[in-house]
Simulated scan of single mutants.
Amino acid sequence: MSEQAVLIPNTLPPSPYETALLPWEDAEAFGQLREEYFIAYPPGCPAARHVLEQLVWCDWRRRRLVLGERALHMASLDNRTSGECRDSLSRRALAVSGGTRPEISSAGAIKNEDEDDAETEQMWAGMVEQAETAESLLEADGADCFAQAFACLPEETAEWFLETCETEEKYNQDRESLLRFLSIEVLPFFRKHRAGAQAGPTVRLQAWGESLDPHRMDRLMQLDERLTRQYEKLLGMLERATARRLRAAVK
């Protein structure tokens, strides 16, 4: 086969490595990569073609490692995170923080972004403010304080209070019950969820950091280093062979 013929993709012989592709790998993408190498380094003899095929396969395996590194991170995230509120990863992330215990799970945190947490925190902050306003009105014990405080509550919170009055005898639709309900049930609940949204970025950083498994990553990097050395060696052999062929053609 002439060098000119090699430049035409349809004339390329089958790759000896095609059968080594993994079931989910894109054979068309592999073929395109191979064509690019054959165009850039048209082999002038069987030995050069053999080196070129090895070079293509080495490059393809190096690209696999990119996917492998991501897979390691994702597997580690899955193993270390949990949907349970205040799970072990979240506790590690917030070990030195004080204040309200946040309502957050590591699995929930990694699904969000900082903008999502900021929006959620703003929502809970508004609900805390409404509940605190209602609490202040009840503590002042002014005329119609119950009606005024009840009107200050978010709609869902007002419904929550009415349903609780129906199901629990200790609560009635009066000033004392609403004040106790806000103090015991509502405000702690709101503050924990607000703190959870505030803690989201910190928990995410902890999860991402723990996904870096140094032992498994070290093995991956060693393989990458070996493949890189092999690639550079093969490329050097091919470039020297190409240079010799060009010099011979000039003579």
Rank of each mutant, 00 (worst) to 15 (best):
H50Y: 08
R49I: 15
A47I: 06
R49P: 04
A40R: 15
E35L: 04
A20F: 14
F38Y: 15
C45T: 15
A47K: 02
T19I: 10
G31R: 08
E36F: 02
R34V: 01
E25Q: 14
Q54P: 06
R34C: 02
R49C: 09
P43G: 00
A47P: 00
L21Q: 07
T19R: 13
Q32F: 05
R49Q: 15
V51D: 14
F38R: 15
L22A: 12
P42I: 00
G44H: 07
A27G: 08
E36S: 14
H50C: 10
E28S: 05
E36C: 04
L21I: 15
P46A: 10
Q32V: 09
Y17F: 15
E36W: 01
T19C: 03
C45R: 03
L52D: 04
Q32C: 02
L33E: 13
I39D: 01
Y41D: 04
E53Q: 14
A48L: 03
E28Y: 02
L52W: 04
P42E: 00
F38I: 15
T19S: 11
P43H: 00
F30M: 03
G31L: 02
E36P: 01
E18R: 07
V51F: 04
I39A: 10
E35I: 06
R34D: 02
L22F: 07
A29T: 07
E36K: 06
T19D: 09
A47F: 04
Y41W: 14
G44V: 01
V51M: 07
P23A: 10
T19M: 04
W24K: 12
C45N: 14
A20M: 13
A20T: 08
P43N: 00
L52M: 09
L21K: 06
G31T: 08
L33N: 09
A40L: 14
A48C: 11
A20L: 14
H50W: 11
A20W: 12
C45Y: 02
R34Y: 03
D26A: 08
W24Y: 13
D26M: 05
T19P: 00
I39V: 14
A47E: 10
Q54S: 15
H50P: 01
P43L: 00
P42L: 00
E36G: 08
Y41R: 09
Y17V: 09
E28G: 01
G31M: 03
I39L: 10
Y37D: 08
V51L: 13
L52R: 06
L21E: 11
E25G: 02
P42W: 00
I39P: 00
F30N: 05
